[in-house]
Write a protein that binds this DNA or RNA. Sequence first.
RNA 1: UGGGGCGUCGUCAAGCGGUAAGACACCAGGUUUUGGUCCUGGCAUUCGGGGGUUCGAAUCCUCCCGCCCCAGCCA
Length: 561
Amino acid sequence: MTAPDAAGPSNFIKNIIEEDLKNGKNDGRVHTRFPPEPNGYLHIGHAKSICLNFGIAAEFNGLCNLRMDDTNPTKEEVEYVESIKQDVHWMGFDWQDRMYYASDYFERFYECAVDLIKKGRAYVCDLSPDEMRQYRGTLTEAGKESPYRSRPVEENLDLFERMRKGEFPDGSRTLRAKIDMASGNINMRDPVIYRILHAEHHMTGDRWCIYPMYDYAHCISDSIEGITHSICTLEFEDHRPLYDWFLDELGIYHPQQIEFARLNLTYTVMSKRKFIQLVTGGHVRGWDDPRMPTISGLRRRGYTPESVRSFCDRIGVAKAASTVDMALLEYCIREDLNRRAPRVMAVLRPLRVVITNYPENQTDELEAINNPEDPSAGTRKVPFSRVIYIEKEDFMEDPPKKFFRLSPGREVRLRYAYFITCVDVIKDERGEITEIHCTYDPATRGGDAPDGRKVKATLHWVSAAESIEAEVRLYDHLFIKPDPEEDEDRDFISNINPKSLEIVTDCRIEPGLAGAKHGSKYQFERLGYFCVDSDSSPGKPVFNRTVTLKDTWAKIQNAQK
RNA sequence: UGGGGCGUCGUCAAGCGGUAAGACACCAGGUUUUGGUCCUGGCAUUCGGGGGUUCGAAUCCUCCCGCCCCAGCCA
């Protein structure tokens, strides 16, 4: 794995930081953080945030913390913190010794709350959740003040302490900030700071039965860690006044919150809720299904950290809601794999070819280039014999215009082998082609004709006897529509692509691929990039198609339709 | 009818008063033992719309239009 590039393209956040640096703000320090909640797996939208936060730290000689935003014990699990750590590392970033948990600061949060109460800026409220909703007002109408709003400080202190001690049941009381029930910003209408939750926390166990809310915990966590630029997504823009309010009231170090637009991608969805629907509904095989835009899914699909980082650099960072074309992600992985993936020949749908003038029981070894983009990758020997397989779609008995692969009477090249000419087509009683007969020209060994004659096509192939069997999983977009959620009154599930996964079981691959390691990546010549899936077993390799090669012929075919 | 944002090529996105970068996609050629890669060229007289300021506006002012987010004791 190569290290992340030092500097990606500029964006408005970097501009702000450069300005801050110029003005000597924070003594020239730059300190960011990536703060996921450990309640699910990371996806490519998080990758954007990871690249942004860790990337900025690296570029400005600063630091980036990894912080678990674990303030809600009912949703969080250690399983997720482990997967998050793994994914961030896989992306190529390192938080060194700065792995933090918001739950590390629970005692401090409590002290701050006491401070707010003493300052008359927080109170214990006995309203039920339902009542609180009533009192909150609506988007266009101001809320009403809680009847408990003017409780004396001493009483608030006493009640809050007893909340901590566990004297009250869940939901019976909250600690609220005393701000402004008439604010146009609903977040400022006396937001809840603490709620009672008698729940086991993955880090603190049963030490607490009151837990801080996000708005309250996040800004203080940032402050404690000395974060200079607290970067988050657009939906928190409305929360910034509250972020600022807590820090100002508390009088503690005040980081700057900056919001950017979250990533959307065509032909997929990007929320935990929807992922859960896909997984539990059996539409995909799990969080790491290669069709999922999760980091674990991309990894299993064969994406490299470099390609994901390159993607994040290319999409930019701005405030306009945007949906990036999946084609860009695919471009990024092709670009990366083109220069590093060894080439290999594999036939997905084998068509038997008998070379009638080639000696029986003879096997030749032909030299093939491992990677034309990388001479240092060297060459290998590929076995050739009288019976080979070619791709079914590379032969047409009655070819349309512009099809220049094999057909009766036509001569093509077998890559690194010989020119062959189709002389006969054998069919079964149902009229299905079972095999074709060809002749080869011994003078073209290696793939060049001494007389200089040209062929219009080069086909990949494998020797029937030496090739080994493999299963190959072909993936397509998970959804049939660029925006699966475009219909508000139609469930996105109904837009799932029924052909998003095609399993092909009788593929033939060149023998050198026996024993290929999980995760190793290859280009199957003329087909695409593939990687060895973890479902592989010793005698039975399974490959995932990461992405096809660009396919001009497919484009021509579509145009002809 | 409240508050907060955003509107530059099909999709992202630079641009910060001096006369529209780049990428992907797309189109047309060239090279090619992958219809891949690579190379060359094309692709916004115009910046949501109307007024205004200015010698000069995508950039400033103003009005309008459109889109996104917010009423969890979620994050």
